[in-house]
Design a protein around this nucleic acid. Structure first.
Lengths: 197, 197
DNA sequence: GTCTATACACAGATAGAC
DNA sequence: GTCTATCTGTGTATAGAC
């Protein structure tokens, strides 16, 4: 009967995820979430036993989705440099296109106190991280794979944050730093470094 | 008279900052903050007109502190590579030593909706960013200074997040990734890149 | 499966005594 | 300058009608 609600839980998660992404767990109330879905809070409690569960399910759905997408473009046998470039291009695009993904990732990294995300992080994000670390293994003669994986994530993630969010920290207009520009920059930086060879 | 309160507002900020850093603005209540200070909420409202002002002052104090520290180690006339190395070493150390600084920075980057941090970010963080971008100028023949600055910040910041927070994403124990290890890694990566020359 | 109505704890904030 | 006491709104969550 419900107006625009297709099925139930999946549709609820669709509508609830952007709110969690933008405002974080503590930044939204069940009333907010319910009105975004188009129902009353009580209706939400029929489908999810608590706000915590609603949040956990919303975020885990997004993460699993992205992780499997990442794996899908990587499982071929490419040479390391190419692999790296492909992954970076995908990751930059994924973070730029799907703002929810990026924000939920950031919120997750701040969610230390409540243990609700510890399992989640270990299940889904670790998976993504493992994929990246795999790439790092190819360069283990030069760098520690773990540190290199962290470097790659940091580069991409922070560029995504800086380009899309409110931060207008550049005095020069850099309107078109779209995904491609950023991806090229990161790839070049990683490959060549700062020295002129 | 107050038990351990030295003066007033500065001491309050000292005690309140760690809470904001750990839990974020929405994660703490005035009651929590007051009891951390050792007073009642009403006492806090005598010194600060709102929770918002208390938060803004707490975070801006930390940022200004760090920004001036960053400038202090940079204003010499060093050559670009050296400058970069010195800055990275300092930044990594600052983020690792001062957990509050790092966390407040993360929270700030997620604080899009409320405009309370827009001015703050533009005043203090922009200052720090400008310093970094200055370094980037030295490499402008290779890279866009803005993008390079973002890259540097992303590298350092994310390493700090990963090494100190709950994220145990490495299967191999990497106990001693202290500031020095990370700084060396980042510096080497930036200077040499991934290619074996 | 969604509603109305509501319980009850806690939020930010203020008044006025001391 | 800090307190007690309290106002008022909002928070999560539930009971029970439909």
């Amino acid at each position: 009967m419900s107006k625009n609600l297709k099925k139930g839980r999946p549709d609820i998660l669709d509508r609830v995820t952007p709110l969690f992404a933008r405002l974080g767990y503590n930044g939204v109330s069940m009333r907010d979430l319910a009105s975004a879905v188009g129902v009353t809070p009580a209706a939400l409690y029929y489908h999810f036993k608590s706000k915590d569960e609603l949040y956990t399910q919303a975020i885990s759905r997004v993460f699993e989705q992205k992780t499997s997408a990442a794996k899908a473009i990587m499982n071929d046998e490419q040479e390391p440099g190419e692999k790296l470039q492909i992954f970076i291009a995908w990751f930059v695009r994924a973070l730029n296109k799907d703002k929810d993904f990026r924000k939920l990732l950031q919120w997750a990294m701040l969610d230390t106190d409540s243990k609700r995300l510890k399992k989640l992080t270990k299940n889904t994000f670790q998976d993504l991280f493992g994929t990246i670390k795999n790439i790092g293994e190819s360069f283990r003669q030069q760098y520690d794979p773990h540190l290199l994986a962290v470097s790659i994530i940091g580069l991409v993630l922070y560029h995504a944050e800086s380009s899309v969010t409110q931060q207008k920290l550049s005095s020069e207009k850099l309107g078109q730093d779209n995904a491609e520009t950023i991806a090229r920059h990161i790839t070049a930086l990683l490959e060549n470094g700062l020295l002129t060879h």
